[in-house]
């Protein structure tokens, strides 16, 4: 069985290895820590971007809603609110008889 001899070549190598490992560990920790911070910065930027996009989305929803308002469409002259001649409209219903001669609280559909 080989014994480690203090002051010998083996002990020297182990010492170097231990120092190397310690330095590497410290650097690894620092590197991971700095990476975490970098990722946090990146995340923060992405969150800002997300907030901005959500804000833009809200603006676009508002714009869409405004542009699709019947009043605006008619005022812009793109189209005039015209309804078809009801003599030419065919109503398709499913198993429902229109209750025309009825005055009652029960709803008709």
């Amino acid at each position: 069985m080989n014994k480690i001899c203090f002051g010998g070549k083996g002990f020297y190598l182990i010492r170097i290895l231990l120092i190397f490992l310690t330095v590497v560990s410290i650097f690894a920790i620092l590197w991971i820590r700095s990476n975490v911070i970098t990722i946090e910065y990146r995340l923060s930027q992405l969150e800002e971007k997300k907030k901005y996009l959500i804000r833009e989305q809200k603006v676009l929803i508002a714009e869409k809603s405004s542009l699709t308002s019947i009043a605006k469409i008619e005022q812009s002259g793109l189209a005039e609110l015209q309804f078809p001649d009801r003599n030419k409209v065919v109503y398709v219903t499913k198993n429902i008889e229109p209750s025309i001669n009825k005055v009652s609280f029960s709803r008709r559909d």
């Binding site: 009801r86 003599n87 065919v90 109503y91 398709v92 219903t93 499913k94 229109p98 025309i100």
Partner: peptide, 14 residues
């Protein structure tokens, strides 16, 4: 529908 839609055949009941 118009009141006379049924007589005019404008209501199709499936």
């Amino acid at each position: 529908p118009r009141d006379d839609a049924k007589e005019k055949g404008l209501i199709i009941t499936l």
